[in-house]
């Protein structure tokens, strides 16, 4: 069932509709603001200043955490507890390899990844967290250092908007660069189609986890990559290597599906084993639904 039928406020957030919006800034605001309106909970969410609970005061507690407003209304002392007391840093690693340029419909994987990156940057901006961006394929093509300075969101969105599908994917070099540039703990968000061996991918990204970062993997795939549904034998050309293979529909309908499912399962399992969070995002999935799941998972972890 389409997400629009379950969340009326999100009916405009279909990725194909977002393609018609003028700028990534507008896309991010449309996604995130609508998403906030749909939460019906606290505006405090995201990466650091997450409200947790009220707790009755007990002797010895820090008086700075007493909610005096509650005391004024009820005459009782309560402590307001947050998860994470300090602003954190989020770095978005955006895969802009040639394979990300694939699109079976109106939205390519790279478009979808750009929307997602923009939305995450906007969320961080609202939370006054430091946000950074690395655009990579087989090397780092663009880098915006994490910062909370004014205009940071515009810089990130500009870098995201100028990203285009480049060459083949290689995780090792860009992640090494990221490790070197990392100065403090934070959250690393990798948005990619992860066309590599899961073992290689996890081996490249798990050092980030060792250094105390939270690692989130957004696996962006086109629906036709999950289900090619060929009606006749076709000659397919690899967008990264240029190699061509004639593919029969019965192969695409049976063996390919098994292989891509195994790849996804393997990647998901290895990511969890490495302490990373993994989200599979088909490009026909509404962005706010994906973000909702992401937030829910992160809240659960904390």
């Amino acid at each position: 069932m389409p997400a629009s039928s379950t969340h009326p406020l999100q009916r405009f957030l279909d990725p194909a509709i977002l393609m018609g919006l003028a700028s990534l800034d507008l896309v991010a605001r449309t996604v995130v603001d609508g998403f906030i309106a749909g939460l019906h909970r606290s505006p405090d969410f995201g990466f650091s200043q997450e409200f947790a609970e009220y707790r009755a005061y007990s002797p010895g507690d820090d008086l700075r955490h007493i909610d005096w407003n509650v005391f004024a209304r009820s005459g009782r002392l309560y402590l307001k507890r947050f998860r994470g007391e300090t602003n954190t840093q989020i770095t978005i690693l955006l895969d802009a390899s040639a394979s990300m340029g694939y699109a079976s419909g109106a939205v390519s994987k790279l478009d979808y990844a750009r929307f997602l990156a923009s939305s995450l940057a906007y969320i961080a901006h609202r939370q006054r967290d430091a946000a950074g961006l690395i655009v990579f394929d087989e090397e780092v093509r663009d880098y915006v250092a994490p910062s909370t300075r004014q205009g940071q969101l515009a810089r990130i969105l500009h870098a995201v908007s100028r990203s285009s599908a480049g060459r083949s994917t290689a995780f090792h070099a860009p992640f090494l660069h990221f490790q070197k540039a990392l100065s403090r703990r934070g959250i690393a968000v990798v948005i990619s189609d992860f066309y590599d061996q899961p073992e290689t991918i996890i081996r490249s990204v798990e050092p980030l986890r060792f250094r105390g970062n939270d690692l989130v993997l957004f696996h962006v795939l086109d629906p036709r990559e999950l289900d090619p549904a060929l009606k006749s034998s076709v000659l397919l050309r690899d967008m990264e290597t240029g190699a061509a293979i004639e593919v029969a529909p019965e192969y695409a309908g049976r063996e390919y599906r098994q292989r891509i499912s195994a790849h996804i399962d393997d990647l998901r399992a290895r990511a969890r084993a490495a302490g990373a969070e993994y989200f599979l995002l088909p490009t026909d999935r509404p962005l706010d639904a994906a973000l909702r799941e992401y937030i829910a998972v992160r809240q659960g972890r904390q």
Partner: peptide, 9 residues
């Protein structure tokens, strides 16, 4: 026809 990757074909 272009396809993102042929690693599973």
């Amino acid at each position: 026809r272009p396809f993102s990757s042929l690693m599973f074909f």
